[in-house]
């Protein structure tokens, strides 16, 4: 691999890795509060991408119940993105109501809740397919320009180029503009989340519940509402992750988020279940790992995350930054 290609791939890896990170944070937030992995998170990711697509006012394809339909209005892309993420957050809250809360009330085995969230994921993915078919969608070409509106002055003639040339090596490294946007957005979200968790009242409450749900409810923290908020947050961020990936490679179909969701599991296990810095580290490591797979083995790229997952589970199940759980007898 040439130096040029290496840096090129590192840039790719950082971009995708940062999305893995914010996506995996959705798992982490819920896991740290409930101790359960929300398997429907991948479906929420997908929904975020589809909702945003719908809100841009573009027509659907030729398959499914909503074939050729479109909204009577169209939103400016950044607004569509916000709306899509909000709707994804809302669906995430509904998922909590349907798949988590009833079983929690019954004190059911956490494996059963996991299965229940899986069932909901399957239902959501297939509802999407039923409504808009299995075809691929992509965002309007103006999306990138719209999202960079405040920064347009940086570019000559006020138009965003599709790629940047970074003359660090010869020939220069070419970074796709969309990757810059993905990376910057992800970092922004990471900073915002970190502030939310460490610097706000609701974040404090979340951490308290994560430490000990019973005591917190005695202290007057409404656990149910906090759990709802956590699901909303996780869905909101997961939805944005879906849009970001959709901007980069297009929405490849209803199963779009399932593969991503599975990789996200590898990310959180690598970082350590329930660890927020772990999710970020895990995301970047797996993103870089995938990007650095040599071209002749590119077919195995999708196996990287799972190989990592498997090896981590065997060698260090608590992950890179996770805590060892002590079982009480």
């Amino acid at each position: 691999m040439t130096t040029n290609l290496f840096f090129q791939q590192v840039a790719n890896g950082l971009a995708i890795g940062s999305v893995y990170a914010i996506f995996a944070l959705g798992y982490t937030l819920i896991f740290s509060i409930l101790g359960i992995i929300n398997f429907a998170h991948g479906a929420v990711f997908t929904l975020g991408a589809y909702f945003t697509f719908t809100l841009t006012g573009t027509a659907f394809g030729f398959n499914g119940l909503l074939a050729q339909q479109k909204l009577p209005f169209s939103l400016w892309f950044p607004l569509a993105l916000l709306g899509g993420a909000l709707l994804a957050g809302l669906i995430s809250v509904i998922i909590e109501r349907l798949a988590f809360r009833p079983l929690r009330r019954r004190g059911a085995d956490s494996l059963l809740t996991l299965v229940s969230s899986l069932g909901l994921a399957v239902a959501i993915v297939n509802i999407i397919q039923f409504l808009v078919g299995a075809e691929a969608y992509s965002y309007p070409s103006s999306a990138l320009n719209d999202i960079l509106t405040p920064f347009l002055f940086l570019f000559p003639d006020g138009k965003v180029p599709l790629a940047l040339r970074v003359p660090l090596t010869e020939p220069p490294i070419i970074v796709r503009m969309v990757q810059v946007v993905i990376f910057a957005t992800s970092i922004f979200i990471l900073i915002a989340l970190t502030y939310l968790i460490n610097g706000t009242k609701v974040g404090k409450a979340m951490r308290a519940v994560a430490e000990d749900a019973t005591t917190s409810s005695l202290l007057g923290i409404s656990t149910d509402r906090l759990i709802q908020f956590t699901f909303f947050l996780s869905g909101f961020v997961g939805g944005i992750a879906g849009v970001l990936v959709g901007m980069s490679v297009g929405i490849t179909g209803p199963y779009f988020g399932i593969a991503f969701g599975l990789k996200g599991l590898a990310v959180i296990v690598l970082g350590g279940l329930g660890s927020i810095p772990g999710a970020v580290l895990g995301g970047l490591v797996i993103g870089l790992g995938e990007a650095l797979v040599p071209a002749e083995y590119i077919g195995y790229k999708d196996a990287v995350a799972f190989a990592v997952l498997f090896i981590v589970l065997l060698i260090r199940p608590q992950g890179l930054l996770g805590r060892v759980f002590i079982q009480k007898v």
Binding site: V115, S116, G119, A121, V122, A123, I124, V125, N126, F130
Partner: peptide
């Protein structure tokens, strides 16, 4: 869809 909802 029906399978999924049944599981839930």
């Amino acid at each position: 869809i029906i399978y999924g909802l049944l599981i839930v």
